[in-house]
Amino acid sequence: MDEHGWITIPARMDQVHEACGFVARVAARHGMDDEGVYRCQLSVEEICTNIVEHGYENVERTGKIEIWCFTHNETFIIEVIDDAPLFNPLGLPKPDPSTPLWERSEGGWGIQFVRRFMDRVEYSDSDSRNHFRMEKRLS
């Protein structure tokens, strides 16, 4: 593992931009190009928004979200960890593109964007916490 950094934010919509800004700064410092930085930022936003809107939805106290960033073998890795009830967003069904847009339910796009924008995504529930890991090649 090379240099790394992490941030903890309260799981609130008005804090999600803090996580995005942090990831953008670390990604740029590690040599990610502008398009890659934008894609990392958007992916973190999608994951954090899901955690705020769905993960902690029925939990009384406000939770926290940890965001870890590091590089390994020329790959930038972002890990988002939370203590909401365990849930694997990669298990969600993909939106059906053959359904007319106006008839579709409005959910499910965020995780599709993340799959599209990152090179590899992985979910695990080690230590009874949600870990969502995203990887993007630096070159």
Partner: peptide, 20 residues
């Protein structure tokens, strides 16, 4: 607008439905 998230896509869909 430099970028859209999925929340923005949901908003555009609401906008489209309202206009329709």
């Amino acid at each position: 607008v430099p970028y859209l998230s999925s929340a923005a896509v949901r908003f555009l869909l609401s906008l489209y439905r309202t206009i329709r």
